[in-house]
Design a binder for these strands. Structure first.
Lengths: 227, 227
DNA sequence: CATAGAATTTGAGTGCTGTCAAACCTTAAG
DNA sequence: CTTAAGGTTTGACAGCACTCAAATTCTATG
């Protein structure tokens, strides 16, 4: 193995990729990912994460502002998107080809995402017909790092009476996924929002299988494409 | 994660499993695996391997006689066989389900063998119909660690004129595998040994596709089941 | 604007897997 | 039986990712 140059971050190992993955996801929702959140997502102490972040900054994979937070550099983002692509392709592969349930695939994909190589990634992509979404509806980054355009909106933001199709269920909580799946609330299902009860009350949704009510905490995970 | 007990070797990581795998294979051909051979197979220095062997001995995974060599304990063997089972199931899966060539699968399987979990292992096994051999013909250990009985004999040990079926091509050299595969010399192929030239000369083999001659070094990799 | 409380970093230390160089056994040949 | 050559182990050390405890910095509130 040759030494890494500063543009070719060889020596990217499991830990590095998992950090980049987490930072990418946290920076989707905020400007910068803060140490404590990163640490919590990875199951390490904040001090451990702090040290690691400094190392990642030295390797030019993250942009670190001490006491403020971390952002990915272009190189870091490239690696994060590659990992996320592999994760979601794996989820799709485990679901469609190997027959695992949609609430089981995240854990398995997590341990494999840093182990698979490019030929595997490409072969899965081919076998699946170049899918654009994982079983939960998250977008699969393309090899160049770009993301498909979509019209997903949180179901809680549309007016009652709106009809549409579920496109994404945004959680990795296995129990919630199983429950929602059992109710028929998974990507592809046509739905009509009947009612949103005020003050955090239940959300009433009409599906082909009948009408059901779920809590706000679950409803806010659901994204639809309105008709 | 709970601390490992001495009978339940949790904390078995990639490195540990690769050591056990290598020791298992080396002890197939000799009484004990010596440090230098282990180090070479793993791409580390003998001193590094020596230290690691001592740790594995402390963990009761290998039986170590200093300056003599290493043997697996029952626990070490159990883990080695599990890894080998996963490796060979992966090879079969990559070949049969994902369409990789038989000379490509070893490398990919190697990086995945320590990453996959039991549900994955079991699912692959089911999808493949509980195969007993990998694409090269090596036996796939059962979950209980037992191995199927076979009648494989090296083709170089049978008298000229013998007919049989190739059962195993015992190498992980990708180039040799590609060459032999291109000649039709892979498991399942019916063959007749025509001649073994003396003094290391070529071996002449009759296959359904014609007669061909290969060198001793390649021929000694081939195992057949005589009719 | 001072300060308490929360977030963050630093410092000291650990476990694992490696390296290199030096010391050490074992064995085969003279 | 001695010795040279080879294999093996030891010792000192490094890098990585982590821990805990202490010091530091930030920020929100009074």
């Amino acid at each position: 193995m040759s030494k890494a140059t500063y543009t070719d971050p060889a020596g990217v190992n499991d830990a590095t990729l998992h950090y980049l993955d987490v930072i990418y996801r946290l920076t989707q929702q905020a400007d910068a990912a803060n140490t404590t959140d990163i640490a919590e997502k990875l199951g390490v102490t904040p001090s451990g994460a702090s040290v690691m972040l400094k190392r990642l900054a030295e390797r030019k994979l993250v942009q670190l502002t001490p006491y403020k937070g971390a952002t990915l550099t272009p190189q870091g983002r490239r690696l994060a998107l590659r990992t996320i692509r592999r994760h979601r392709l794996l989820e799709m592969f485990l679901h469609k080809v190997m027959g695992f349930e949609w609430h089981e695939v995240d854990d398995h994909a997590h341990v494999l995402e840093t182990a698979i190589t490019e030929p595997l990634e490409d072969r899965m992509d081919e076998m699946l017909g170049h899918p654009t979404r994982c079983p939960h509806g998250h977008l699969i980054p393309r090899k160049d790092g770009s993301l498909p355009e979509v019209n997903d909106v949180p179901i809680l933001t549309v007016p009652p009476g709106t009809t549409g199709v579920i496109r994404c269920v945004d959680t990795d909580n296995s129990d919630w996924l199983k429950y929602l799946g059992d109710q028929g609330l998974k990507p592809g299902a046509p739905v009509k929002l009947k009612d949103i009860a005020p003050y955090g009350g239940p959300i009433t949704i009409e599906t082909p299988e009948g009408t059901l009510a779920i809590g706000q905490n679950l409803a806010e995970l659901i994204y639809i494409e309105p008709d």
